[in-house]
Simulated assay, not measured.
Amino acid sequence: MKCHFRHPMLIALLCCSSVFAADKIKIGFISSLSGSGGALGVDIRDGFQLALTNGNNKLGGLPVELSVLDDQMNPDIGRQASERLIKRDHVDVMTGMVFSNVLLPLLPAILESDTVYISTNTGPADYAGEKCNKNFFVISWQNEDLPGAMGKYVTQQNEQNVFLIGANYPGGRESIAGFKRHYKGKIADEVYVKLGQLDFSAELAQARVSKADSVFFFLPGAMGSAFLKQMDSGGLNKTMRIYAPGFSGDQDSIKAVGEPMLGMYNASQWASDLDNAENAKFVRAFEKQYGRIPTMYAAQGYDAALLLDGAVRDVKGHIEDKTAFRKALRAANFKSVRGDFKFNRNHYPIHNIHMRVVERDKQGRISNRTVGMIAKDYSDPYAVNCKMD
């Protein structure tokens, strides 16, 4: 760049302004904070906010300007919120969305605006392979990760005939696909229901007729709670063993369902009892701040903030240098509450996946206990098709 100003102060200000770091980082947080999946968005928000609170509302030394908006599980409302954050507020980073059917219609415009998006929950297959994008990072999991681990585990348990049921949206279909990728037994039946459905009488009748010895399900939020309650009231949980990914066996479901979930196995990249210092700190702080046991959703929100904290620090606050900022995010220089973590070439996690079982803890509370590791350094099957270096 050539400058033609004679005054040295103008030259310093106009030509060399890049030496000054940003004075704040603006984050747009859109999530499902109401509706049947609202508990999930609230937990992600609370985990993210807890990390900000612990850091005196700073990330990497920069003050945070956080805008929180509710997409109400509706992509049209989400699109309005996204456009406001990008065009009016000029946010540096966006994050928070829960459901893939909300995120996917919005993501092209977000990425085309050269805005970094950090997914705190859904990890769609669409952007894990050939469409991987320099501005898209997934801190949680690829949608098949946890169901795939469950497929492996259910096979190890010698389950011969499994009934599958999932919500009919991208995340639900990919979850069932992940289970099927690793399960080696027979599938008694495969059923998909409308996202948000709460009455499963017809599907449970199908399950009974199928003669399955077990059921694997992915029904997010209140859907899963309703399904488990109806399994219990109909007595099917006495004749069919129940398996789920962690997002259908977490604390939000346990709170709603209670004792009928005792003994249920579920896979997750995180658990409240994972033995590492960062996790212990997170669990203590979350219970103190909010008066409840954190979920994996809260852990994912917390990790997203820690990821940003490390990246902003690594670029010394120069988030306007987007190439350097993306490189710092890719490096993932932070201590995850799940333990070992790194990004694959597609910006999706390489991480360990653990088996959990719902039991009563020493305080008599119903919660998950880690049984063991089911997959070490797990990476999704789509990353090989990503051409990013």
Rank of each mutant, 00 (worst) to 15 (best):
H7V: 13
L10C: 05
A21W: 04
K26Q: 11
K26G: 04
G28I: 01
S31I: 03
L33I: 04
G41C: 08
I44V: 15
Q49N: 12
T53G: 07
T53K: 14
N57Y: 10
N74M: 05
P75G: 14
Q80N: 13
A81F: 09
D92Q: 07
F99E: 07
F99V: 06
S100V: 02
L103F: 01
A109N: 14
I110Y: 03
S113L: 06
D114P: 00
T115C: 11
T115Q: 01
S119H: 05
P124W: 10
G129K: 09
K131D: 14
K134M: 12
N135Q: 07
F136C: 08
V138Q: 10
D145A: 14
L146T: 09
P147H: 02
G148D: 09
N158S: 15
V162P: 00
F163G: 02
A167E: 11
P170N: 12
A177W: 00
H182F: 13
A188R: 01
V191W: 09
V193T: 06
R208L: 11
F217L: 14
P220W: 03
A226I: 02
A226G: 07
A226Q: 11
A226C: 10
F227K: 01
K229V: 04
D232Q: 13
G235E: 04
Y243L: 11
D250S: 04
L262Q: 08
G263A: 10
F282Q: 05
R284T: 15
R292C: 05
R292M: 15
M296L: 15
Y297K: 03
A298Q: 12
E320P: 00
D321R: 04
A324Q: 09
R326T: 05
K327G: 13
F334Y: 13
D340L: 11
F343N: 11
H351K: 07
M355D: 03
S367L: 13
Y378Q: 14
S379I: 05
S379F: 04
C386G: 09
K387F: 15
